[in-house]
Amino acid sequence: MTQKLSSDSTPTQRQTVKFITAATIGTITLILSGLTLTGTVIALVMATPVLVLFSPILVPAGIVLFLAVTGFMFAGGLGVAAITALTWIYNYVSGKHPPGSDQFDHARMRLANKARDVKDRAKEYGQYAQNKVQEASQQTA
């Protein structure tokens, strides 16, 4: 039994190769990230005087560029939304069954029922008001 425990606790050759591979890849990645950080800091130190010198031009240009890109993205998004909506409407009108058409039909029927109820109530109220006017005119005559 003790012999089995000792054979389970010793790493196999495959586990050793996995560990060495992971350690090598991790070390290389760490070195590359350090070199990238060093290069970024050196580039920032070299570019800082240029950025400070041209900041009165670069800041407004950056703002204008940001607003222009945002405007184009917004307009493009609205165009995509419009095309999507028109496609859905076309599919709905042409008799196809686009997603959400059941909910749309249900809402349309509820709205039509409410409009019919309001119309009936207005008609009843109109008749009620007309009767009251007739009663008032008969009492004064």
Rank of each mutant, 00 (worst) to 15 (best):
A129F: 01
I31T: 00
T21N: 01
L65F: 08
S94P: 06
E124P: 07
A43G: 06
V45Q: 15
T10H: 13
F19Y: 12
T70S: 03
L58H: 11
K114T: 08
H106Q: 14
V59G: 03
G76F: 03
Q103V: 05
L5D: 12
R108T: 14
A129V: 03
I25G: 00
T12N: 07
V59E: 02
A115T: 08
A115S: 13
P11L: 11
N113W: 09
E135N: 01
V133A: 15
A23N: 14
M73E: 08
K18W: 11
K18V: 09
T24Q: 04
A61R: 04
I25T: 06
K114L: 07
A85I: 10
T10F: 09
Q130S: 14
S6F: 10
L5Q: 09
Q103H: 06
G95L: 02
Q127V: 13
W88E: 05
Y128N: 14
L86G: 10
G79Q: 00
T2V: 09
A61W: 01
G77F: 05
G95C: 03
L67E: 07
K18R: 15
A81R: 10
L35P: 03
Q127K: 14
D8M: 15
H106C: 04
Q130T: 10
E135G: 04
S6W: 08
P99D: 00
A75E: 13
P99E: 04
R121H: 08
T87W: 02
T29S: 13
V45E: 15
L44W: 15
A136R: 01
L78K: 12
T140Y: 13
N113A: 07
Y92G: 01
T36Y: 09
S6E: 11
A75S: 14
T27G: 03
A82I: 09
R14N: 01
K123E: 12
R121K: 11
S33T: 10
Q13C: 11
P60S: 02
T24A: 15
V133Q: 04
G39C: 04
T48V: 10
Q103A: 13
A85S: 10
D117Q: 12
M1H: 08
V69T: 05
L32W: 05
L78Q: 13
V80N: 01
I25P: 00
S9Y: 12
G95F: 00
D102H: 03
L44R: 10
F104Y: 14
R116V: 06
S33H: 08
S101M: 05
G79K: 00
N113F: 03
L111Y: 11
G26W: 04
D105I: 02
L78N: 12
L44I: 07
A61V: 12
K114D: 11
L65C: 06
A43F: 05
Y125N: 15
Q134G: 02
I20V: 15
I57R: 11
A75N: 11
D117W: 02
V133N: 05
A47I: 02
I83A: 11
G126E: 11
S137L: 10
V41R: 03
S7K: 14
F72A: 15
G34M: 02
I28A: 07
K18I: 10
S9V: 07
